[in-house]
């Protein structure tokens, strides 16, 4: 497979309150072995050489685990492939001559900082509201094996815990709902005995903070599950709903 010519249409926005627009960037000589972000690196390198402002985008680990990268590529969070983040997307997914639209996450609680970088601080605030087990650090806790956990529960909790907090679910959802993100944390901790004691409090607090941040409601479209780079299942939203319902009706 030879190198490709592509026509990129990329969202440029100088700051949170500035008006943005799509701008054309033709690129040549794109190797199919490049990752999508490496392709942007090359583009930026050329922009700097021409003394133009390079495109701002978030990224860090470049192996699909830190959750820092984002990008809406041709209308899909993390691009056309399933189960991966943008940094794991390789150019061999595209064809010579393709036009590719690149946009930031679009959701009201994720304001644009610059170009393709957005502020996802709302997720941290939801986590701080209740996404934890309330224990202090001490050297005299019970032994890790004191409480056996059925493998099935541990595995399910793990599946939920793989959430990388990238925000693809929110960006994908027509309502801008953060239910999959919140459900992943609530589900993980409610499946484990260590998280049970404060399960009710957690579900109520995290949902309350989620609403406060301005995320929309879940209407079960299921788009989040499809675009989630960690393929976190909608079942977790069902579990969150159960936890939340129980917590609401049994609230003192």
């Amino acid at each position: 497979m030879g190198n490709m010519k592509l026509n990129l249409k990329i969202w440029r926005q100088t700051g949170p309150n500035a008006k943005g627009q799509m701008k054309d960037y033709p690129v040549n000589d794109v190797s199919p072995d490049m990752s999508f972000l490496e392709m942007l690196d090359v583009l930026n390198d050329n922009l700097v050489r021409k003394n133009e402002d390079p495109i701002a985008f978030d990224h860090d680990c470049r192996e699909g685990i830190c959750g820092m990268c984002s990008l809406f590529i041709n209308g899909e969070a993390h691009g056309p492939a399933r189960g991966i983040t943008t940094c794991q997307l390789h150019m061999r997914r595209f064809k010579d001559g393709d036009t590719i639209h690149v946009e930031p996450w679009r959701a009201q609680p994720f304001p644009v900082i610059k170009d393709l970088a957005t502020d996802r601080g709302a997720f941290d605030r939801i986590q701080a509201a209740g996404g934890f087990v309330s224990i202090n650090t001490s050297g005299n806790l019970v032994d890790g094996n004191a409480l056996p956990i059925p493998k099935d529960d541990a595995d399910k909790a793990f599946d939920a815990a793989t959430c990388i907090g990238c925000g693809a679910c929110v960006a994908t959802c027509p309502n801008g709902s953060a239910m999959l993100f919140v459900a992943a944390k609530v589900s993980q901790l409610s499946l484990l005995p260590q998280g049970r004691p404060e399960a009710k409090r957690r579900a109520l607090a995290m949902v309350e903070q989620m609403d406060k941040e301005g995320f929309g409601n879940c209407s079960n479209t299921g788009a989040c599950e499809i675009e989630c780079p960690k393929q976190i299942s909608l079942e977790h939203i069902a579990r969150l709903n159960r936890e939340y319902l129980v917590a609401t009706v049994t609230k003192e």
Binding site: F132, I135, G144, D155, A157, Q188
Partner: peptide, 22 residues
């Protein structure tokens, strides 16, 4: 060894065997 106990208590889902142990 304390680290493992601490992490388990935080709700870290370590791999477990069929007996439910780490």
């Amino acid at each position: 060894a304390n680290i493992i106990d601490q992490c388990v208590a935080q709700g870290v889902p370590f791999a477990r065997d069929y007996g439910g142990l780490l």
